[in-house]
Design a protein around this nucleic acid. Structure first.
Length: 740
RNA sequence: GGACUCGUAGCUCAGUUGGCUAGAGCGUCUCGUUUACACCGAGAAGGUCAGAGGUUCGAGUCCUCUCGAGUCCACCA
């Protein structure tokens, strides 16, 4: 505690000046060696792709309110900031920027490209960092982490190596979701479905007719399939027929498989193992060859004959006339179905066979389910526990490689003499799930001359999934037990984590799995899912719709504190909020008015004192100005109004504390607001005017308590006004939360 | 096709484990230039808490169904 004999009443010119004061006095720093109980909050690292939006502002306001509340309660609070490199998204935004400069990945090459990427990262980071400070985020900046920093790099390597040694990592050609635009494999959870109206084409395949939406994959068909119970086609099963693919004739067998729905189309399907997940499985079951028709750029391969080189959609349209002409296409139907698109860039994703790395997550998922079912994590709202366990129940292996440059490069090295890829027999590999190259080495740095590193990088979520640990120096700093009273993992598990619901599987479920696996412990005690802020039509805010509202717009207009207060009204867990500029302006105005009200109350109580009123307000005169107890000094005469006021305040303290402990920020904020304005100002202060001098001690006492309780929500005004007290501490941040 | 959430005043939303005449902000109307504040104060209008049934001494709050809105998961070639 900073003890100064004479504390000056600071006056600040701006919010940023107040922030600078807090920062330079190190009020945000966590202190491992302190005797206080730790309370840790982990900031979800925003993606490094641009400005922070309203959702971030709400999320960070919630985190900051809790951090400030816990600090006032006397905890050693760690609010840890960081940003995420966001592989795919970053590369997409960076590519747009590069193309404006007439540059590209190809032109620059990996090394130069990475150099420029880091410069770009710094540029974006500045805006993120600026927004955080503008919002008043009381984060421990000395501990800030970026997902590509050395710390996370070591954690990522440790996790990768550990998985590898345990036989949980394998590599090989498998069918994956491939985004032709981003040129990388993505995960099922990164795929969205859009309903589209397309055509269902009825094609003649030898003696049979079948229905398909994708005639262009015809070149990769290696069988026809029917349901084994389908009487109509019983006699065809096992027989071979000659089919015209428009790129030459081909012999094709008819197989029987339960996966075929006899009700759909004609009950016959073409089997394209290379470009359809169900067909791939059928291919394995019936030992069918795999023929690649679509390449990683989303164009048809040489097997497509004269259609080779065309994009999927082009090829489809181009081949229809020929199919008709040859009598192969006999019928078209309108057909509405779901098309898989990349959640980032919205382009149609193609199932493609590609050489990728995978983690076997079955056992990790089981362990995660166990801790969730044992209620070790307090989910808010609580039904998210089941949503997550449901997903974990049906989890499949995690494709952790991405064909990108921005990320943690896979720490695997091959002798430059050997071939890195092993495309020989994909199916055998797929069935055996063994695709490890015998002489590869797992190492962070090059094992020496003549070794080349794997070209791919790890999925962004691999490093994000380790975030709760890597930010605290796992594994290195967790090992120094001897001689150290407290180590970094004193903050682990985190007391509080918050997230948007949309990344509950991508991120939250992964953190739980990885944390349970590597530490045997949960990553966080409270998992808070906030709702999504939407526009009045219920749509998400997005750049493409142009319906976004900049937090800076509100902050400029109404001030940070008012903006934060407006956002807390939407902080009910799991509930979406519908907002428009007008509605947020309305709330901003309301809370700006409240801030003004507070200033006027303070002016009345502390600046417009009646002559002869007690200088020290009758509060305890020896301490440094903490208003812990109601005025009970003999010099203070309390009447029934005073007593009621003090009793009401006590009740408020209880109520607000409870709401904050339950993370009901909206209720806590509303309760203080209501009390301050309509009980304290409208009633008590008005009545006190008749006996001002006598009421002065209670006026000051109540005001100070209210400011302290409001500080988590409105940090700036409360600091500004607190400084006007004669008896006080250096900052309101050093005050103590009132106890009733 | 599965799972979940929501439907409360004109608008945006609160309403803790069921308990007094259902709340806030904004908006509307009336009044008020009282020496903290018009970015204010006093007051008013406005809701059969989507609908129906049930449990209960008592339900916006629990159960069932219907209607409506939305989210997530799976996905049919």
């Amino acid at each position: 505690m900073k003890q100064k004999t004479q504390l000056k009443n600071k006056s600040f010119k701006s919010e940023s000046e107040i922030y600078g004061f807090w920062e330079s006095e190190k009020f945000f720093s966590a202190d491992l060696q302190s005797s206080k109980k730790p309370f840790s909050l982990l900031i979800p690292p925003p993606n490094l792709t641009g400005e922070l939006h309203l959702g971030h502002a709400m999320q960070h306001s919630i985190l900051d309110a809790l951090a400030r509340f816990k600090r006032l309660q006397g905890f050693d609070v760690l609010l840890l900031p960081g940003v995420d490199h966001a592989g795919i998204q970053f590369e997409a935004t960076f590519e747009k920027k590069l193309s404006k400069e007439n540059l590209s990945k190809q032109k620059l090459g990996r090394e130069k490209w990475l150099e420029k990427a880091w410069e770009f990262k710094e540029e974006i980071y500045k805006s993120v960092s600026g927004s955080w400070r503008m919002l008043g985020l009381s984060a421990d900046w000395d501990r800030e982490v970026f997902t590509l920093d050395e710390g996370p790099k070591k954690a990522v390597f440790e996790a990768f190596k550990s998985f590898y040694d345990a036989g949980l990592i394998y590599k090989g050609p498998y069918i994956v979701q491939w985004c032709p635009k981003d040129r990388t494999a993505i995960e099922d959870v990164e795929v969205e479905y859009e309903e589209r109206k397309e055509k269902l084409y009825y094609l003649k395949y030898g003696p049979l007719t079948l229905a398909t939406t994708r005639p262009e994959t015809k070149f990769g068909d290696t069988a026809m399939a029917v349901n084994p119970k389908d009487e109509r086609y019983k006699d065809y099963v096992g027989k071979e027929f000659e089919i015209d693919t428009l790129a030459g004739k081909k012999k094709m067998r008819v197989v029987a498989d339960d996966a075929v729905d006899p009700e759909f189309g004609t009950g016959v399907v073409k089997v394209t193992p290379a470009h359809d997940f169900a067909d791939y499985q059928m291919g394995i079951r019936h030992n069918l060859p795999i023929v690649q028709v679509i390449n990683k750029e989303g164009k048809l391969t040489d097997v497509a004959g004269k259609y080779a080189g065309m994009k999927v959609q082009e090829a489809r349209e181009a081949m229809l006339p020929e199919l008709k002409e040859k009598g192969i296409l006999i019928k078209e139907e309108e057909y509405a179905h779901n098309v898989a698109v990349c959640e980032r860039c919205k382009s149609v994703v193609e199932p493609i066979i590609s050489e990728e790395w995978f983690v076997k997550v079955g056992d990790l998922a089981k362990a995660a389910i166990k801790v969730i079912n044992a209620s070790k994590i307090n989910f808010l709202p609580k039904n998210y526990a089941r949503i997550i366990t449901d997903w974990l129940e049906n989890i499949h292996d995690w494709c952790i490689s991405r064909s990108l440059w921005w990320g943690h490069r896979i720490p695997v090295w091959y002798p430059s003499t050997s071939l890195r890829t092993s495309p020989s027999t994909p199916l055998r590999q797929a069935q055996g799930r063994s695709g490890q190259v015998a002489d590869m080495k797992v190492s962070l740095d090059s094992p020496g001359e003549g070794w080349v590193q794997d070209e791919q990088v790890l999925d962004t979520w691999f490093s994000s999934g380790l975030w709760p640990m890597s930010t605290l120096g796992w594994p290195e700093k967790w090992k120094m037990v001897n001689g150290k009273l407290k180590i970094e993992n004193s903050y682990f598990p985190w007391d509080f984590e918050i997230s948007a619901p949309e990344i509950k599987f991508l991120w939250i479920a992964r953190m739980i799995m990885l944390s349970v696996h590597f530490t045997g412990n949960i990553p966080f005690k409270i998992m808070f899912f906030h709702g999504m802020l939407r526009d009045l039509e219920g749509r998400k805010f997005s750049k493409s719709l142009g319906n976004g509202i900049e937090p800076a717009y509100l902050i400029d207009k109404w001030g940070v504190d008012a903006t934060r207060m407006a956002l807390y009204t939407y902080s009910v867990p799991g509930r979406d909020g519908r907002v428009s500029k007008a509605i947020l302006d309305e709330r901003g105005k309301n809370y700006r008015n409240f801030a003004t009200k507070l200033k006027n109350i303070t002016k009345f109580i502390l600046e417009l004192k009646p002559n002869g009123s007690t200088r020290h307000s009758g509060l305890s005169r020896v301490d440094s100005g903490v208003a812990q107890k109601a005025p009970q000094n003999d010099n203070v005469k309390m009447n029934t109004d005073d007593e009621k006021m003090v009793a009401d305040l006590d009740a408020l303290v209880k109520q607000v504390t409870k709401h904050l402990e339950n993370i009901d920020l909206h209720l806590a904020a509303e309760a203080i607001y209501e009390f301050t304005w309509h009980k304290f100002a409208d009633v008590y202060i008005e009545k006190s005017k008749a006996r001002r001098a006598e009421a002065q001690p209670v006026l000051e006492y109540v005001l100070k308590q209210l400011l302290i309780m409001l500080h988590p929500f409105m940090p700036f005004v409360t600091e500004e006004l607190y400084q006007k007290f004669e008896v006080k501490r250096e900052s309101i941040m050093e005050e103590t939360w009132p106890s009733a």
